[in-house]
């Protein structure tokens, strides 16, 4: 099964494009501090100077090197997305699996809670908390992941119910395997594709929200983020700063979200046989 999937992913242009650009962006994220020519908080340069050899993308209104800001801002956006994606995935898998395995009251409670959370617009809760308490970005990422887990949990639960009634699970039970053993050795690995899809969609949503909330001014204004850069640059749109200040973060953010979208779409396509036929 895994060889087939490997083969199909390799043949899907969207996956190849997503993975290729994704690796490049990941390198930028990991090597960011080494690549950045200046400290992103160093405010000693001449404000609003155009691109030059020392400052590839020029200097912003606060006297900071835009290229270095860009690298650090992308790190923050990506980190926010990864944390929110991973935590919401972990919660979703834990809740979904336990609901499917134990059933009964626990299942009912978990699914009703999921329904309620699905109805509440996550971004509104996030805005309220961010505006009132000024929490650190990591706290906001955790808050977001507590709002985003229901879809993953529902998907995992549905699939786990199918797997749970499979012949091999019955066989394992007959041979005296404990519930914990079956969950860890059979259920968890067999649902693996769902994790990838869930993680990609959640990470995408979280990055999008981080950039948007930063754009709206809900984060610490001195924190580096692609959204904040766009919002600052937009204030100076009447100057000749489009190409070096406004468009680079816009382009990078779009590329980032596009990459994750490609990965999510191609994963869904390959792992969901019904969808694959449609493509």
């Amino acid at each position: 099964m895994y060889r087939r999937i490997h083969h199909e992913l390799g043949g899907d242009p969207w996956f190849v494009a997503g993975a290729g650009i994704g690796l490049f962006l990941l390198l930028l994220v990991l090597l960011g501090p080494a690549l950045a020519p200046h400290e992103p908080y160093n405010m000693s340069f001449i404000p609003l100077s155009p691109p030059s050899a020392g400052h590839w993308l020029g200097v912003n209104d606060g006297g900071m090197d835009i290229f270095s800001e860009l690298l650090y801002g992308m790190r923050n956006t990506v980190a926010f997305g990864l944390v929110a994606g991973l935590v919401s995935l972990a919660i979703g898998v834990a809740v979904g699996l336990s609901a499917a395995w134990f059933g009964g009251v626990q299942d009912q409670l978990a699914m009703r809670l999921a329904d309620i959370l699905l109805a509440i617009p996550a971004v509104m809760i996030l805005i309220l908390i961010a505006a009132l308490f000024r929490p650190s970005p990591s706290v906001l990422a955790l808050t977001l992941s507590f709002m985003l887990w229901p879809t993953t949990a529902k998907g995992v639960r549905a699939q786990a119910l199918v797997v749970k009634n499979g012949l091999h699970i019955h066989a394992a039970r007959q041979m005296g395997a404990s519930g914990a053993y079956i969950i860890v050795r059979h259920l968890l690995p067999e649902l693996f594709p769902l994790y990838l899809i869930g993680f990609a969609t959640k990470a995408r949503m979280a990055m999008f929200m981080e950039a948007s909330l930063a754009f709206l001014g809900l984060f610490d204004p001195s924190r580096k983020s692609l959204g904040i850069m766009i919002s600052y640059a937009l204030k100076y749109y009447y100057l000749d700063i489009w190409w070096n200040w406004l468009l680079p973060p816009v382009f990078l953010l779009s590329l980032l979200i596009m990459t994750v979208t490609f990965l999510a779409i191609s994963l869904e396509k390959v792992f969901d046989p019904r969808l694959k036929e449609a493509m």
Binding site: A211, I230, L234, V250, F251, M258, T261, I265
Partner: peptide, 22 residues
């Protein structure tokens, strides 16, 4: 459409603003 689906509103918004308004 798949490419467009990946571009966030901030991106399209800023670019349309620059091109068609400014």
């Amino acid at each position: 459409m798949t490419v467009l689906e990946g571009i966030p509103e901030i991106g399209t918004g800023v670019i349309l603003l620059l091109v068609f308004a400014l």
